[in-house]
C-alpha cells in the first residue's frame, strides 16, 4: 500500500510534504535503538517520540513514513529535517493501540 492510499483510510494528518512511498510493514517502538536493531526499509514507524533523532534514524533505516501517536507535536526543525530527508511525518490523536487497529483494518498486515 502507498502512503497516499493510507491517508484515505486511516485517521492521520500529514505535517509536511507527502512522499508517496510503498509501505512494507509496520514497526512500533519509542526507542531509536530498537529501530536500529529491528527496523527495515519501507516500514511505517509508529512512535510517541517527537525529537529530531526520529528523522535521522528513520532516514537511515529508510522508513516509509513516521506516525506520531497521541497528538504529540514535533518542533518545526523536526519537520524541516523530515522534508530534507524525504520522510512524511503524520500525527494522530489516536493511541498507539488504536492506530495499530486502524492500520490493520485498513489492510496493512
Amino acid at each position: 500500500m502507498k502512503i497516499s492510499e493510507l491517508i484515505k483510510k486511516v485517521n492521520i494528518t500529514p505535517l509536511n510534504n507527502l512522499f508517496d512511498r510503498d509501505i512494507t510493514g509496520v514497526f512500533v517502538s519509542d526507542m531509536v535503538s530498537d529501530l536500529m536493531a529491528f527496523g527495515k526499509g519501507g516500514n511505517l514507524w509508529i512512535t510517541i517520540q517527537t525529537h529530531k533523532k526520529i528523522i535521522s534514524v528513520g532516514a537511515m533505516i529508510d522508513v516509509s513514513a513516521i506516525i506520531i501517536a497521541r497528538d504529540k507535536q514535533p518542533l518545526e526543525e523536526v519537520i524541516e529535517a523530515a522534508n530534507l530527508s524525504e520522510i512524511t511525518v503524520f500525527t494522530t490523536g489516536l493511541s498507539t493501540y488504536d492506530l495499530c487497529h486502524e492500520l490493520y483494518e485498513a489492510g496493512i498486515r
Binding site: 526507542m31 531509536v32 536500529m36 517527537t50 533523532k53 537511515m60
Partner: peptide
C-alpha cells in the same frame, strides 16, 4: 543515535 532521556519522552 542513542535513547536519551526516554523517561521524559522529550
Amino acid at each position: 543515535f542513542k535513547d536519551v532521556g526516554l523517561l521524559s519522552e522529550e
